[in-house]
Design a protein around this nucleic acid. Structure first.
Lengths: 202, 202
DNA sequence: CCATGGGTTGACCGACCGGTCGACTATTAT
DNA sequence: ATAATAGTCGACCGGTCGGTCAACCCATGG
């Protein structure tokens, strides 16, 4: 089983890298198998279909995020505004490192997949959506705390959280189209300026 | 030549619809030809490659934009802030109409292509980038005008313009992943809150 | 009346796609 | 020792991919 786990893990991490660096449609199972040093039959022993692989990749990356820099950025020991700065910084360094390594900015796997696949595959779309929803709650909690602490004026924390997530994705999109991580560093901090007002209380 | 023009135009508009509604990789030339009622040989008479077709589609859509709602939204008769509202509105109604028609939110063709293709195709990436650059100048001019009129405090109009474009793309991305145009209407207006400050003048 | 050339046609190409399958091997429980 | 099971292997499947090509159609100009 150790061997099996290893094979599965190799497929998963290879697929993740390739999907992230290129795209879902552009990466074939054959190529994944070659790089992961796995035979095709073995591949289909672990993943019933390419779609299933995609789901596993999404879950895998989401897990890494949750326990990685998302956990760090949204650390409750940091002040709310520091968390946002940390997040932008982390995104910047990540993209920069990837570009220095591969020559191209891969962007955000979830954003990439969302745009590529969500018109054709409801299942994958839903899964990505769940990842976004979870990310959004982190912003939401951060904003609630900032309001409680009186750091910012009261606002619609839920919608603003979504707006911040959208902005982050948009900044990464634009940076990817420029193939320049600096865009993230320049535009990123403006995330703190985003505000969606509370609905008027009649 | 009239006939020829018609054939070319049919290919172009069909490809545009399909690329926009699905993705670049997912749409084959055979399918485009079938729907456009054009033979494959004729296709290659007008477009030397799929990549060339993509470029033509980008140019075509960019043209339509420039003379369509972008021209309307950035009408100099509107006040700067009205222009931004108009733009969000236009984006919302466009996506809503598309979804009502097709069942799925297509999002922004340029954003979609940027994320799908820009790691594999420098030429297309550059073309999309040019479209973004042009869109950014519209924001830029709008912001400059708003500052001149004293409607907003001075800021880094160029970077803020890019931030606004990024936000618009991000909002559309998130809306697409929700398959819900309402996201555009809810999050969109916050575009006016974005600010990137001027570099400190020493 | 014929030559020229833009436009059309559809069969064809090799490569590759996601996925299947039967044979085989290594591991483990009984 | 044996039987069952998990995992490996790679040839093979039908279908599709982007792209090619030689033959043909037909309007125009000389």
């Amino acid at each position: 089983m150790n061997q099996a786990f290893d094979t599965r893990a190799r497929i998963l991490s290879t697929a993740r890298e390739l999907f992230h660096g290129r795209s879902y449609a552009d990466v074939g199972i054959k190529e994944i198998c070659e790089i992961a040093q796995v035979q095709k039959g073995s591949f289909y022993h672990f993943f019933p279909s390419k779609q299933d692989l995609a789901m596993a990749v999404i879950d895998d990356m989401a897990d890494d995020w949750a326990h990685g820099f998302v956990a760090e950025a949204f650390d409750r020991d940091l002040s709310p505004l520091e968390r946002l700065d940390y997040l932008i910084d982390a995104a910047y360094y990540w993209q920069k490192a990837a570009k220095d390594l591969e020559g191209r900015m891969p962007g955000c796997l979830f954003g990439n997949l969302a745009l590529e696949v969500s018109t054709r595959d409801e299942v994958i779309r839903a899964r990505i959506n769940a990842v976004f929803a979870k990310a959004s709650t982190h912003f939401h909690e951060t904003l609630d705390e900032a309001v409680e602490l009186g750091l910012i004026l009261p606002l619609n924390t839920q919608s603003t959280a979504q707006a911040m997530l959208a902005y982050l994705e948009g900044v990464i999109l634009l940076a990817k189209s420029h193939n320049d991580p600096e865009v993230v560093r320049i535009l990123g901090p403006a995330i703190k300026a985003l505000r969606i007002e509370l609905p008027p209380t009649n």
